[in-house]
């Protein structure tokens, strides 16, 4: 108990201000690094990153959550909060789709066409969520037929099903494969044609507008872009 209290008091003595960043789940690792970098530059600021599905985050922001910055995994959810942005959103990263399979690719899957094979259990995102809409768009562009066993609510659920071995293959984002273990990616031909853009904007609902602007600058600047590229994100 004493330790916990001591921890709290040091934290509050050093952190005079708090910057609350709402970021899409796929940005978890990247924003942990950016949080550290920002706090190193601004010793009196405590950056608190709240992660979740973009739709979920946008919904809580609309309901009045005190976000200073919102980094969304798609433009639709940024539009949902557009009345609350303090400055126009900027695209800071892009992501493309890929096939995720078990390590070693035991079923020798080569592309989207193989997902309709009888011996392949595949899962994709539901058309209602951004990754599912992108998957459909890519399949249409490639003329591939999908025969999924499940239409998951999020890309994390697709990845989970493949990582657990319930499904043989799934369609996820390139950066998701980098985060998971026991799986590898199989590039999809023409994947570059369907690009998912990540917008970021400072929000008017928060209390630290000046800090929010400098955090957005960090993400858009060289340091931020380097961390994003290392995680597999494309540049805007």
């Amino acid at each position: 108990m004493t330790l916990v209290l001591a921890g709290c008091s040091t934290a509050s003595a050093g952190d005079d201000r708090v910057l609350t960043v709402y970021a899409a789940a796929s940005l978890t690792d990247v924003f942990a690094q950016l949080e550290e970098a920002y706090e190193a530059e601004h010793p009196h600021v405590d950056v608190v990153v709240v992660h979740g599905g973009s739709a979920e985050l946008a919904a809580t922001i609309v309901e009045g959550a005190p976000a200073d910055v919102f980094a969304s995994a798609n433009e639709a959810q940024m539009e949902a909060v557009q009345e609350l942005t303090a400055a126009p959103p900027t695209i800071f990263a892009t992501n493309t789709l890929t096939l995720v399979v078990e390590d070693g690719n035991p079923l020798r899957l080569a592309g989207l066409d193989d997902l309709a094979r009888e011996d392949v259990v595949s899962v994709v995102c539901a058309p209602q969520v951004p990754c599912g809409a992108a998957t459909l768009e890519l399949a249409a562009a490639e003329g591939a037929t999908l025969a999924p066993s499940s239409q998951e609510s999020s890309v994390t659920d697709v990845l989970g099903k493949v990582a657990a071995g319930q499904a043989d293959a799934g369609v996820v984002y390139v950066t998701d494969v980098a985060r998971a273990s026991g799986v590898e990616q199989v590039e999809i031909d023409g994947a570059a044609a369907v690009v998912n853009s990540y917008p970021i904007a400072p929000m008017s609902g928060g209390e630290s507008l000046d800090l929010a602007a400098s955090f957005v600058d960090l993400v858009l600047g060289d340091a931020g872009q380097r961390v994003l590229a290392e995680a597999g994100f494309g540049s805007p």
Binding site: V123, A126, S150, Q151, E152, S153, D157, G160, K161, Q166
Partner: peptide, 9 residues
Amino acid sequence: TLTFAGSMP
């Protein structure tokens, strides 16, 4: 259900 069974209409 979401984790174990999936989600198919």
